[in-house]
Simulated scan of single mutants.
Amino acid sequence: MAVPLTTPAKSRTPAARAGGNRRNERGAAALFMVPFFVLFALVTLAPIGYAAYMSLYREQSSGLGFGGTERLFVGLGNFTETLADERFLASFGHIALYCAVYIPVMIGAALGLALLVDSALTRAKRFFQIAYYLPHAVPGLIASLIWLYLYTPGLSPLTDTLATLGSDWNFFGKDEAFFSIVNVSAWQWIGYNMIIFYAGLQAIPRETLEAATVDGAGAWRTALQVKIPMIRSTVVLTLLFTIVGAIQLFDAPKLIQLRAAELGTDWSPTMYIFAQAFENRDYGQAAAASLLLAVVAGVLSYVVTKLGNRWKAA
């Protein structure tokens, strides 16, 4: 009697069946991930590659502008010229000052509101969550336009009220315009980050809070020594996203600059890139500045992550 060379499916060992199931799962997972990687390549990798290509060239006019333009290979010339431009370096100084004021205000207010909504004394928590989140539902450009109206004397009830109280605060003044920008960003993002912090607070085991209460900890001590330390990961993640978003600031300063000319058209790095590309028509330098901005964002992300990990481990 001949012995079959192949093993019937029913006689396969459990380990072989498990291996086959794992291969099927990997294949299905890879199939579902294909659309993501295709879109990622089209909307992220391809633009970065094209920007890198553009940063190596410069368009130069000849014949007093009547002879057309020609593209010249300049290598790293656009990068060195951008790094030597005082306006580009000053824009990072403006953003650093902006972060020093905006981040503590925004994070502190969002965390305080989250703790307030999470407290047992607060009623209608769902209403307050929606109310605080509504400013973020307004697109950034529209929010900047709204505040531009509220800052404009003669049009805004806000400025009329301040004038009635005897205040001559000029929202578009040389020094005041900076705080006007901070206010627009804080108004838009406090509610959004409050929701994130509130979700983190909800994940804290209730047994831990009850134990703190039994040990005699009051509301303030519980908030500072129990709740906040237990959502360190959430705070670090929010801080990371806030810093990366801050160095890409564009809408608020761009619109406020229309009334506050002292800001200049290159107040922030993104405004500098916009001016180089669409005002000076220097696409090579704009591409170089964009890549340098991406490098700075990556370095800041790494530094914030490392410091956050140390804080979480402390």
Score class of each variant (00 low, 15 high):
M54A: 13
L121V: 13
S91F: 11
F36L: 14
R87C: 03
R58E: 12
L45F: 10
Y50T: 04
M106V: 14
E59D: 10
S55D: 13
E81K: 03
A51P: 11
M106Q: 15
R71C: 02
S119V: 09
A114H: 04
S55L: 06
R26A: 04
A29C: 06
A96S: 09
G77T: 01
L83H: 07
L83N: 03
G68S: 04
D118Y: 11
Q60I: 03
R58G: 02
A120K: 11
T69H: 09
G27N: 14
L115F: 08
P47K: 09
G75L: 01
Q129K: 09
D85N: 15
G27Q: 11
F79R: 12
T80F: 02
S61N: 06
L111D: 00
A41Q: 06
G68W: 01
A84C: 01
M33E: 07
G68K: 03
M33N: 04
E81Q: 11
H136F: 13
F88I: 07
A51M: 15
E86P: 00
H136M: 10
S119E: 08
L31F: 14
G75I: 01
V34S: 05
T80V: 13
G93R: 10
L56M: 12
T44E: 08
A124E: 13
L97G: 14
T44L: 14
R26Y: 03
R23W: 13
R26G: 00
F92H: 10
F32L: 15
L83I: 06
L56S: 06
L116V: 03
L116W: 06
A124H: 12
K125R: 12
S61E: 07
A51Q: 12
E25L: 14
L31C: 08
L111Q: 01
G75A: 02
F36Y: 15
T122R: 04
V138I: 15
S62P: 02
Y132W: 14
L116C: 02
L39P: 03
E86W: 04
A84Q: 07
G63M: 14
T44Q: 11
F36Q: 08
I130G: 00
F32W: 10
L45V: 15
Y133S: 00
N21C: 05
A114S: 12
L97D: 10
V43W: 06
Y132T: 02
A124K: 12
G27K: 15
N78E: 09
T122V: 12
F92A: 04
G27R: 15
L121Q: 07
G68H: 07
A110K: 00
V117I: 15
A84P: 01
A131C: 05
Q129P: 03
G49N: 11
P104S: 09
V43F: 14
H136V: 05
L76V: 12
A110M: 04
L64W: 08
H136N: 14
Y53N: 11
V105M: 15
A96T: 15
N78D: 07
A110C: 05
E86C: 01
